[in-house]
Design a protein around this nucleic acid. Structure first.
Length: 102
DNA sequence: AACCTGACTTCGG
DNA sequence: TCCGAAGCCAGGT
């Protein structure tokens, strides 16, 4: 079996329902390490190229997009809005409303 | 083959 | 309450 942290993270991300978002820390915690949020970010980089993952549903704990706009941040915002997520005027997301509680 | 960096979070002072 | 430092895994150089 592939019980590596990476595969766990991938599985968790695949379970994020449409129209909801999750934070790096939340995913890391579900994958087994609450402090491995950083790896989650890196995994999205490497895995989203090969596998199809809803990477756009992953944001930081402040409820904002972590990518620089020129790195896909705009795309991410666009994709989330298409799923019905409303952004605040400061480009943040209402975690109380959209955070994925499994 | 070793070292560095990355779309972050949490803990301690 | 605010700021600094540590933690974690993998891929690229």
């Amino acid at each position: 079996m592939m019980a590596s942290f990476t595969s766990q993270v991938k599985q968790v991300i695949k379970q994020i329902p449409r129209g909801k978002i999750a934070t790096y820390g939340q995913i890391a915690k579900l994958a087994g390490n609450s402090r491995a949020a950083r790896q989650v970010a890196w995994i999205l980089h490497s895995s989203s190229r090969k596998d199809v993952l809803p990477w756009h549903r992953v944001i930081n704990s402040k409820g904002k997009i972590s990518l620089p706009p020129n790195r896909g941040g705009e795309l991410q915002k666009n994709l989330l809005e298409k799923e019905g997520i409303i952004f605040n005027r400061d480009n943040s997301i209402n975690l109380k409303k959209y955070l994925w509680n499994f």
